[in-house]
């Protein structure tokens, strides 16, 4: 079984659609990779695969090898990148390899609808779990899921519980947005986890607040704090609130390295830079973004994103939590 040598399997779940499961999966993967772990991302959203788009590898195709499919590499293991802050003296981690598998890589056209009923989806999920040749000794396999608690989820859990050891299956990160509508769907997902005996590693509240790029006033577009209250109610850890950052969207959509106006504070740290003469939006006015803005690996550019330090904290917490569980007899 290709999953045999995978060390930790983490599911990213949410009862609600569009709350940022794929976006969170992407950032968890990039951050894990920055911390030096080798990561695989499996996208089992069959009717709406977004992972290829998020990693900017939409044109890639899966290769076939004897015995299975070879996942699409995002980047190979890298030597440490130069530190962002030249004054820092702490040693940088080498970058772990990152690869992805999604139905998007198999479709012949990106706008093809995948119109499948349950049994066919079940078959595909099983095939993804049994036939993808992940690199040996993969540190983390992140599984991005579609919204809901239906065929894909049931099949995923059935297969995982049958084929991997309990110590491999670390648990689930549950994503929500702060508004009540989303919370009520996500509570269903938490009950799903309870029912199937899947450990909830924690709840991430996404899209909590939006800082106006013009006047720096923070607006809670989709309310705030709902995720934390829910986590408390279900007695699961709360991993943190992630604000909306348009610069992250530009990074994903156009590959532009995030830049912030001077004076932007994230977690008490200045992330703005003086060289920025205008908002990132100006690039669309000029037509094309400059080469300098778009060059480099996604993982390197992500380091400039204001969300990167937040995820660094979230991931460090998760890694420590998973490790401490493993240490238990």
């Amino acid at each position: 079984m290709p999953l045999d040598t995978v060390k930790n399997i983490v599911l990213v779940l949410s009862g609600k659609g569009g709350v940022g499961k794929s976006s969170i999966t992407t950032q968890l993967a990039l951050t894990l990779s920055l911390q030096g772990y080798s990561v695989g991302v499996l996208d089992i959203d069959l009717t709406g695969p977004s992972i290829p788009r998020f990693f900017g590898i939409e044109d890639s195709k899966v290769r076939q090898a004897p015995g299975g499919w070879i996942p699409v590499p995002v980047h190979d293991a890298q030597p440490p990148l130069p530190p962002r802050d030249p004054t820092t003296t702490t040693a940088q981690n080498p970058i772990g390899a990152l690869s992805c598998m999604s139905l998007g890589f198999i479709l012949s056209s990106r706008s093809d609808a995948v119109i499948w009923r349950g049994p066919k989806k079940t078959a595909m999920v099983r095939q993804f779990l049994s036939d993808v040749l992940w690199p040996d000794n993969l540190d983390y396999l992140l599984i991005d899921t579609p919204p809901g608690t239906s065929d894909e989820h049931i099949s995923l859990l059935e297969t995982l519980l049958k084929t991997v050891t309990p110590s491999q299956l670390s648990g689930a990160v549950v994503v929500t947005t702060p508004q009540a509508i989303s919370i009520s769907d996500v509570k269903k997902e938490l009950n799903f986890c309870k029912k199937v005996g899947l450990r909830v590693l924690g709840v991430v509240e996404n899209m909590a607040g939006f800082v106006c790029p013009n006047c720096s006033e923070c607006t809670n577009v989709f309310s705030k704090g709902g995720g934390e209250i829910m986590a408390r109610e279900f007695e699961v850890p709360f991993l943190g609130s992630i604000p909306i950052d348009p610069a992250f969207v530009y990074l994903i959509e156009e590959g532009i390295r995030p830049v912030y106006p001077q004076g932007t504070l994230i977690a008490g740290k200045e992330v703005g830079s003086q060289e920025v003469q205008a908002q990132p939006t100006s690039s669309s006015v000029n037509g094309q973004a400059s080469k300098e803005q778009t060059s480099g690996l996604l993982v390197d550019k992500y380091r400039s994103c204001s969300l990167s330090p937040l995820f660094d904290g979230v991931v460090s917490g998760l890694v420590a939590d998973i490790a401490s569980r493993r240490a238990l007899p």
């Binding site: 939006f210 006047c215 577009v221 530009y250 156009e254």
Partner: peptide
């Protein structure tokens, strides 16, 4: 498009930008 609710600002941000 998201209109900043700050009365003095009113800046329209494209949170989910139509690239």
């Amino acid at each position: 498009g998201f209109v900043c609710p700050n009365k003095k600002c009113g800046y329209v941000s494209q949170i989910f930008r139509a690239s």
